[in-house]
């Protein structure tokens, strides 16, 4: 309507004739870029998605403060797949849950739902934004690991990508379930706490069978344990365990259903 003030009548006709949505791919691309920038620029989000995995990677490889049973592998080969799995959870779950919860509280979800983006486009933008951040994480973590002598199984890289996608689906669904049902402050606490619990006892970094007692069994059927095991299987060259893929797929289905069922937009 920039020209409207000078040409009132024509402005009106062009105004309504030109009214329309941008193509769907452009709307989703814009939302993806917006979400990605929001995460990469937010200090706390960067802490969880970039600094924490890198600290754990370097800390576990370079120091032996924590005793690891690497099963004959070098420390970096043993640890890196788990760190990648952790990075996936930190972005798909912790960071996304917090971002969505605050967007929900601030009415951002409602406002964007009234623009041509709609709810579907918003969701697509979020998922793609998560994948974009994960790509950055994979490159940075991979580069640091390679610099420390990481030798991933070349044949496992493609399966690892698939595992990463599946894990992203499961944990994004969990993030949306939590963000769409709890208060924003509650989500902040839960999302960080769950991440810590999963890292320590969820089979992400430490293989479930190395966990004590009942935790070993529990971690095997948790999405975190399944993701960690699948990632290790792929990148350590022992093959992706099908049980883990099955567990992750099951969680994805259940969490996606619950998210769709219980997510409240306001």
């Amino acid at each position: 309507m920039s020209g409207t003030s000078t040409t009132g009548k024509t402005g009106t006709t062009t105004g309504s004739a030109a009214t329309g949505a941008a193509p769907a791919w452009r709307r989703v691309a814009a939302q993806t870029a917006f979400e990605t920038r929001a995460i990469l620029r937010n200090g706390e989000q960067l802490l969880v998605t970039m600094v924490l995995p890198l600290l754990l990677l370097v800390g576990l490889v370079r120091t032996s403060v924590i005793e690891l049973d690497t099963g004959g592998l070098s420390r970096v080969d043993f640890v890196t797949p788990g760190v990648l799995a952790l990075a996936c959870v930190s972005t798909a779950f912790t960071s996304q849950a917090i971002a969505t919860a605050f967007d929900r509280r601030n009415g951002v979800l409602r406002l964007l739902a009234t623009t041509p983006l709609g709810r579907g486009g918003l969701l697509a933008g979020k998922v793609l934004g998560v994948l974009a951040v994960e790509a950055v994480q994979a490159v940075v973590i991979g580069a640091v690991a390679l610099a420390m002598g990481w030798q991933p199984a070349a044949a496992g890289i493609l399966p690892a990508l698939g595992v990463g996608l599946l894990g992203t689906a499961a944990f994004t669904a969990l993030a949306l379930l939590v963000a769409g049902t709890l208060r924003a402050e509650g989500v902040l606490a839960v999302a960080n706490l769950v991440l810590v619990l999963l890292v320590v006892g969820g089979g992400l970094l430490v293989p479930p069978d190395q966990l004590p007692g009942a935790l070993a069994h529990l971690a095997t059927v948790l999405p975190s344990g399944a993701l960690g095991e699948a990632m290790r299987g792929a990148l350590q060259g022992t093959g992706v365990p099908w049980a883990a893929v099955l567990v992750l797929t099951g969680w994805t289905a259940v969490l996606a259903w619950a998210g769709a069922r219980f997510f409240r937009w306001q």
């Binding site: 917006f34 601030n106 983006l117």
Partner: peptide, 25 residues
């Protein structure tokens, strides 16, 4: 909206450009 619905972490100009990107013209 009454409560604004603006993403708090983004710059004002970015928000406006972002919403504008949803429309053809």
């Amino acid at each position: 909206l009454q409560d604004g619905g603006l993403p708090t972490g983004a710059r004002a100009g970015e928000v406006l450009r972002h919403v504008a990107a949803m429309y053809a013209a």
